[in-house]
């Protein structure tokens, strides 16, 4: 089975974020990056499928030079080769424009399966995988927490609300968006890191891949979340405080 895993590099989870000067993104001067969590699980799911079924795992990542670290990590964990779509300021592409780029690269490979995380930790739109499936004209399954080969296709477990699961069968080729926690993540071992040195990384310029790729919904401005909650302490004897409270609930909060 030929599997493409689309993964995004995002700013590391524990980072302290500051807005960039133009407030269209965050200041990345001192930023540390990591593979988007759900995408790391997508990679793990891909590697496990390959180990069961045989085949090939190709890591696909769009972004500037820094993403080569994410690609190297994917190769060190066991991806066979990688495609790097060279792209400055990936954050200024919306999900549709990003999906168009990924789909161009996927078409060149013609895989049986595309795996990606269900959403990114930075923007969190949760659309890229689904939109990519539409562009490819392939079926997709979201919120995937289990994958088993079934007949010529896959039997997939989806996570629903409240501890419920749903099983879906899908033919191939298909796109699955993976939920974090689908399997235990493996480490990049030192031997894996060394092996990654000699694996192929094909670099394609985003503009060559897709000369026309307009973003319909660019990020215009980011704002820091404002603290809107406030605490008031009502002083005085209990009866008085209770009367004040009722008054506030009636006329300010309007919940009574």
């Amino acid at each position: 089975m030929k599997i493409v895993v689309a993964l995004k590099q995002v700013i590391a989870r524990d980072s302290v974020l500051r807005l960039s000067a133009d407030a269209r993104w965050v200041d990345e001067t001192d930023a540390a990056y990591e593979i988007n969590e759900a995408d790391a699980y997508a990679l793990e799911a891909g590697l496990q499928l390959k180990e069961k079924q045989g085949g090939e795992v190709i890591a696909l990542c769009a972004g500037p030079g820094r993403v080569s670290k994410a690609i190297r990590e994917a190769l060190a964990k066991g991806a066979d080769r990688a495609i790097h779509i060279a792209l400055d300021q990936p954050e200024q592409l919306d999900s549709l424009a990003t999906a168009r780029l990924l789909v161009e690269a996927v078409r060149q490979e013609g895989p049986d399966l595309v795996l990606t995380g269900l959403q990114s930790d930075d923007v969190g739109a949760g659309q890229t995988g689904v939109v990519a499936a539409e562009l490819l004209g392939w079926p997709h399954v979201t919120l995937v927490v289990g994958i088993e080969p079934a007949g010529g296709g896959l039997r997939v477990r989806r996570e629903l609300e409240g501890g419920w699961f749903q099983y879906v069968e899908t033919p191939l080729p298909a796109v699955l968006t993976i939920q974090s926690g689908i399997a235990r993540l493996r480490y990049a071992t030192l031997m894996g890191i060394k092996r990654a040195r000699s694996k192929e990384v094909r670099r394609i310029d985003a503009r060559e891949l897709l000369p026309q790729n307009e973003t319909a919904a660019p990020i215009v401005r980011l704002r820091e979340a404002e603290k809107t909650k406030q605490t008031q302490i009502l002083e005085g004897p209990p009866a008085e405080a209770a009367a004040k409270l009722v008054e506030k609930l009636k006329f300010e909060a309007r919940v009574l």
């Binding site: 670290k69 990590e73 480490y187 990049a188 030192l190 890191i193």
Partner: peptide
């Protein structure tokens, strides 16, 4: 980049 990956993997461990 490779050294940073080595550090990361040891740190995760």
């Amino acid at each position: 980049e490779e050294e940073l990956l080595v550090r990361q993997t040891a740190r995760e461990f």
